[in-house]
């Protein structure tokens, strides 16, 4: 019995270790690359740790570009779009979970279909629309688009969370004289914080990483987001892997921190909403 357990344990340890190496190596490698001076970038044999550690790539990035601006833009954008999506999705998800009404299936179906629509099909008309609204090159246009992008999925996610919470909870509150909305915010929301956190993080990360819409709508330096800036780094002159890797490291740090901090809630939140069967 004891032996069997250690045997099982060692499989687990080996598997999880290998998987960890597989997952972390690319990140390690891009980090190491960012610390290499440009003349060591291509040296053979490959150095798994730079001979001369340097921060020149980071300094360079900060000097030639407005990286602080990009990070700030991305943060503002993702936070606001994430929060707005969350609010809209909470309202929508609540209604979809609690009520039965005409057109409900159609609404859910319409949301489901949005997931299948390739982004590019509507890009040209979308651009014309945005241009008419004078929203080109302005962060609010992306906030709007990202919210639109996130709302359907988040709504259905929230619907799943609400369905797991017995409606007796808010009924009790409504008996005490609360209105439905107050009951929703006072009683139900606090119970499903992990679900909210998970949904928010999902939306935040998606917005943080979105490339094509941002490239499409933004080219002004002051309004660039990180993916747009990264895309610009592939310049005519060279794929400057030094700056590129430094920029990559800088740009993933916020989301990595968010994940490291919030991974517990993500799983907890998803657990709340996972099974609906």
């Amino acid at each position: 019995m004891m032996r069997q357990i250690t045997w099982k344990l060692s499989i687990k340890v080996v598997f999880l270790s290998l998987f960890l190496v597989f997952t972390v190596f690319p990140l390690y490698w891009i980090f190491v690359t960012s610390l290499k001076p440009s003349n060591e970038m291509f040296t053979i044999p490959i150095q798994y740790w730079p001979e001369n550690v340097t921060f020149e790539n980071y300094i360079n990035i900060i000097k030639i570009s407005n990286f602080d601006v990009y990070i700030m833009n991305s943060l503002i954008l993702s936070l606001i779009a994430g929060v707005i999506s969350l609010i809209i999705a909470t309202l929508g998800g609540y209604v979809l979970a609690r009520f039965e009404f005409k057109g409900k299936t159609q609404v859910i179906f319409a949301f489901f279909i949005t997931q299948m629509i390739p982004l590019f099909i509507g890009l040209a008309p979308l651009y014309l629309l945005m241009s008419k609204l004078e929203l080109i090159n302005r962060l609010p246009s992306l906030m709007l688009m990202y919210t639109v992008m996130m709302v359907p999925f988040c709504t259905v996610m929230m619907k799943g969370f609400f369905e797991r919470i017995p409606s007796s909870l808010e009924e009790a509150a409504m008996m005490d004289g609360c209105s439905r909305i107050t009951a929703l915010f006072k009683v139900i929301i606090p119970v499903m914080l992990p679900g909210l956190a998970a949904t928010f993080i999902f939306a935040f990360v998606q917005c943080w990483n979105e490339l094509f819409l941002a490239v499409m709508f933004i080219d002004k330096e002051e309004a660039k987001t990180i993916p747009v800036a990264m895309n610009s780094f592939i310049t005519k002159f060279d794929i400057d892997w030094g700056s590129m890797s430094a920029a990559t490291v800088l740009s993933v740090i916020p989301t990595l921190l968010l994940f490291a901090f919030a991974q517990k809630y993500i799983v907890e939140g998803m657990t709340q909403g996972s099974i609906k069967g």
Binding site: N137, V215, M216, D219, E221, V228, N231, S232, I234, T235
Partner: peptide, 16 residues
């Protein structure tokens, strides 16, 4: 000054 990424710059200008 607007400086779109090289790869799709001409396409971008056409679009505008």
């Amino acid at each position: 000054l607007i400086s779109p990424p090289l790869q799709s710059a001409d396409e971008k200008i056409t679009q505008m």
